[in-house]
Design a protein around this nucleic acid. Structure first.
Length: 573
RNA sequence: GACUCAAUAGCUCAGCUGGUAGAGCACAUCCCUUUUAAGGAUGGGGUCCUGGGUUCGAGCCCCAGUUGAGUCACCA
């Protein structure tokens, strides 16, 4: 057995595994293990006077052990939480044979192993509700030691906190950090709340293509792939907007989708290459209706997760109680910069940018310039939920023109904590206007704006058949979850955030070493000494190599016959 | 992409001007009675991220790289 790559603790656990098998105990049994209670049920239901719960079965992972001669305490963690168990040698092993306690529990089980306990509930002198074990079943042996996190009066000791390890080995993070499990439960509850809210209106949850021939509906850089049978490029969707609108054309009154979108752009605390957006489209509505609907939805989510509308986010309290104030983009800019941009042309806007010390470049049209002013000077002021409305037409190629001012669109964004959270329109359903707007986008493309949209002719064809007046809204589920769970980073609300691949050191197979005349038994020793490839080995100092591997042989009690210096020199000559 | 910071035992972290690598938890052996971030005794465990350089001597200083975190830029 090659144990050189394992830590001491891993070797000990593998030995324990073998010992269990020798005792006739299967460390990975196949049978169903029927439990009667979760840890939390027992803690809630046990009543000392009634002396109830005298026959319970629980299962979970051993998270701590305190062994004192013929009595021990341990904590078992199941999906709901932890509960203490008490093991008394003579209760667990009433007969002559004390192996189950003395050997199996005390020596062969470890923190991290899954066990099942059948027993009765009581309260210790310390007042802790505890299950006294009458039977113990090994359910699964753990071969790697878990990080040990201890907690006393809410204070956490030796937290498992390294972000890289937490994200790469999320399973470990989930085992030892209960608040992480809680965050993801909240994420699911959030999605369920929104789904129930929409369903209560009779809107239909749908699925639309992830692989799209034209990546439309947003301004972003897509991932490209290739379909072999069709021999065409396909794009992973950056949005699902244009497909959902086709469904409104088809006659549904309301459709929504939780859409996993993919954008081939930078990654940081608020951006992951794949993320979840929610989009909903409702016929015969406008953006005023959608504002109230959105606010109601967000309020409902806050209530479902927290039981109240106030939510702690960082060092602020954000109150999601409706209604939310509505501010037009022009008024917002006027308020925070003193400039009234209404009716300004591109040159005048550039002047404003100069005066406000905002950078811009020549590819930026009116829309982007206004966006830059807003982003720089206004956005961060909107901490409490606020709707910003009536965006310039250049910024919103899929949005209906404002009913009172053709320079503007009927669009709003919901800002919370200084960031955009949701985006919504009275959807553009005039096919001729839509065609012109797409053509404007193409001009922007030619001007060098690499985010401008491509023309989706099938979508235009759909609009030409007629789409009822419709309002649509999109919201970032990850970012909403970040707000609602007070998580500062998107990685904290994604189970498996995208990471750079772990790189493994290059390592030659054993054939290559055998070719040099090295006995097979010595190969792991050589690799343990740091020579993973034949190439590296060839550059080694033969004297040092000889000393190193003989030393390892002794240290790990390998019992191999040491080669001579000449042998070693011969291998690498 | 730029800058700043970090990487030491399974985990959390110390480590003095540059002089033989440390603690707590975990692990092993032993003692022990309903204990609680259990206690006591003893012990094992390290490629100090990698590669160069300076030096009699590098965990520490210098250079380059890897990975991560943060700030900014870009991006919703």
């Amino acid at each position: 057995m090659n144990n050189l790559e394992l830590s001491e603790q891993e070797i000990i656990r593998r030995k324990s595994l073998e010992e269990l098998r020798k005792l006739g105990i299967d460390p990975y049994p196949a049978e169903e293990y029927k439990t009667t209670h979760h840890s939390t049920d027992i803690k809630e239901q046990f009543n000392e006077e009634e002396n109830n719960l005298q026959d319970v079965v629980i299962a979970g992972r051993i998270m701590s052990r305190r062994i004192m001669g013929k009595a021990s305490f341990a904590e078992i963690q199941d999906s709901e939480g932890r509960i203490q168990i008490y093991l008394n040698r003579d209760e667990l092993c009433p007969g002559e044979d004390k192996t189950l306690y003395n050997t199996v529990f005390k020596k062969l089980l470890d923190i991290g192993d899954f066990i099942g306990i059948k027993g009765s509930v009581f309260k210790t002198q310390m007042g802790e509700i505890t299950v006294e074990a009458k039977e113990l079943t090994v359910l699964s042996k753990s071969l790697r030691p878990l990080p040990i996190v201890k907690e006393k009066d809410g204070k956490v000791y030796d937290a498992f906190s390294d972000p890289e390890m937490r994200y790469r080995q999320r399973y470990v993070d989930l085992v030892v950090n209960p608040e992480v499990r809680e965050t993801f439960k909240k994420r699911t509850l959030l999605i369920q709340t929104i789904r129930n809210f929409f369903n209560s209106f009779g809107y239909l949850e749908v699925e639309t293509p992830v692989l799209q021939p034209i990546p439309g509906g947003a301004a972003a850089s897509p991932f490209v792939t290739h379909h072999n049978a069709l021999n065409i490029p396909l794009y992973l969707r950056i949005a699902n907007e244009l497909y959902l609108k086709r469904l409104i054309v088809g006659g549904y009154e309301g459709v929504y989708e939780f859409s996993r979108n993919f954008r081939n752009e930078g990654m940081d605390r608020t951006h992951n290459p794949e993320f979840t957006a929610l989009e909903i489209y409702v016929a015969y509505k406008d953006y005023n209706w959608m504002m109230d609907f959105t606010a109601k939805m967000v309020e409902e989510v806050a209530m479902a997760l927290h039981g109240k509308t106030e939510v702690q986010v960082g060092d602020r309290i954000i109150d999601f109680k409706t209604p939310y104030p509505k501010v037009t983009m022009t008024d917002a800019i006027k308020e925070h910069t003193g400039f009234d941009i209404s009716g300004m042309n591109e040159d005048q806007l550039r002047e404003v940018c100069d005066k406000l010390d905002i950078e811009y470049d020549d590819s930026m049209g009116k829309g982007k310039l206004i966006d830059a002013i807003f982003g720089e000077k206004c956005e961060h002021h909107y901490i409490q939920p606020t709707f910003i409305t009536d965006y310039p037409v250049e910024m919103s190629p899929l949005c209906k023109k404002h009913r009172e001012n053709p320079e503007l669109t009927e669009r709003f964004e919901l800002f919370v904590n200084g960031h955009e959270l949701a985006n919504a329109y009275s959807e553009l359903n005039d096919p001729i206007d839509q065609r012109e707007r797409f053509e404007e986008q193409v001009k922007l493309l030619e001007k060098g704006d690499d985010e401008a949209m491509y023309i989706d002719y099938d979508f235009l064809r759909a609009l030409e058949y007629g789409m009822p007046p419709t309002s649509g809204m999109g919201i970032g589920i990850d970012r909403l979850t970040m707000l609602m769970t007070n998580s500062p980073s998107i990685q904290d609300v994604l189970f498996f955030p995208q990471m750079k691949p772990e790189k493994k050191p290059e390592k030659d197979g054993k054939e290559k070493f055998i070719e040099l005349g090295i006995p097979e038994a010595w190969i792991p020793v050589i690799q343990k000494a740091g020579f993973l490839t034949v190439k590296a080995l060839k550059e080694a100092n033969p004297n040092k190599l000889h000393q190193d591997i003989c030393g390892l042989n002794k240290k790990f009690k390998m019992g191999l016959k040491n080669p001579s210096k000449e042998d070693v020199a011969g291998w690498i000559a």
